[in-house]
Computed example of a mutant assay.
Amino acid sequence: MNGDEQLLRGRVYGRDHDDPDPGPLPHHTYAALMGGPLDGLLLDITGWRAEEVGDGAALPTELGQFPGGRSVYEPRPGEPRAPGPGVSCRYYYCGDTR
C-alpha cells in the first residue's frame, strides 16, 4: 500500500485528510468504495433516494487516470443494501473519465 492509499483508508470521501477525525459520523449512511483510486474510502449517501443510491457516483479525484477527472463507482445489481446508519452498500470501481 502506497502513502496515498494509507491516507485514504477509513476516511470519508470529501473530508480533508488532515481533519483530526476524517472518519464516519454517527447517524450517517455510507457506501464503501471498492477498488480503483478511492479504494477504502466511504461515500456519505445520507439522504440519497433509493434511485440515487442505485445509480452510483462519478467522483472528482486527482488520483485517477485523468488528473482532475472522475472515478466512476457503481453498485452491483442485486447486491443487498442494509438500512439505516453505517455502511449500507458497496460501490465498485468501473473506470475513470475526464
Rank of each mutant, 00 (worst) to 15 (best):
L63S: 08
E74W: 07
R81Q: 12
Y73F: 14
G56E: 03
D39N: 15
E51H: 12
C89K: 00
E5S: 15
D55Y: 06
E52P: 00
Y92N: 11
P24I: 09
M34H: 07
Y13Q: 05
P37D: 13
Y13D: 06
G84T: 02
P26K: 12
D96V: 12
A50P: 09
H17L: 08
E5W: 10
H17P: 11
R90S: 12
G86M: 10
S88W: 06
A31D: 00
T61M: 11
D96M: 13
R11I: 04
P83N: 04
A31I: 01
T29N: 00
A31W: 00
R15H: 00
P24F: 11
G47P: 06
G64V: 07
C89N: 04
G40V: 06
D21R: 12
L43C: 03
A57H: 09
H27C: 03
E5F: 05
L42R: 04
P20M: 07
G64P: 05
L8H: 07
P22T: 08
R81H: 05
G69R: 08
L33Y: 03
V87M: 07
M34I: 15
G56A: 09
D18F: 09
Q6I: 11
R49A: 14
E5V: 05
Q6R: 14
G95M: 13
L42W: 13
P80V: 05
V72T: 14
G68L: 08
R70Q: 14
D18E: 12
Y93V: 14
L41M: 10
L7S: 05
D96Y: 06
G78R: 06
M34R: 13
E51D: 14
R98V: 10
M34D: 14
R70G: 03
A31H: 00
A32W: 01
H27T: 10
R9G: 01
A31P: 00
G3R: 15
D39G: 08
A58I: 02
E62G: 09
R98N: 12
Y13P: 07
P22S: 09
E79I: 07
G35T: 11
L59V: 07
N2H: 10
Y30M: 05
Y91T: 03
G86V: 10
M34N: 04
P75C: 01
L25G: 07
P83L: 13
Y92G: 03
T61R: 10
Y93P: 04
D16G: 14
H28M: 01
R9F: 07
V87A: 03
G23P: 02
P26I: 15
R70V: 15
M34E: 14
P37K: 11
M1K: 11
L8P: 01
G69N: 09
C89G: 02
E52C: 03
D19F: 02
L59Y: 10
E51Y: 07
D55Q: 15
A31G: 00
Q65A: 15
V87P: 01
G14P: 02
G68A: 08
A57E: 11
Y13A: 05
Q65D: 13
R98A: 15
T46Y: 03
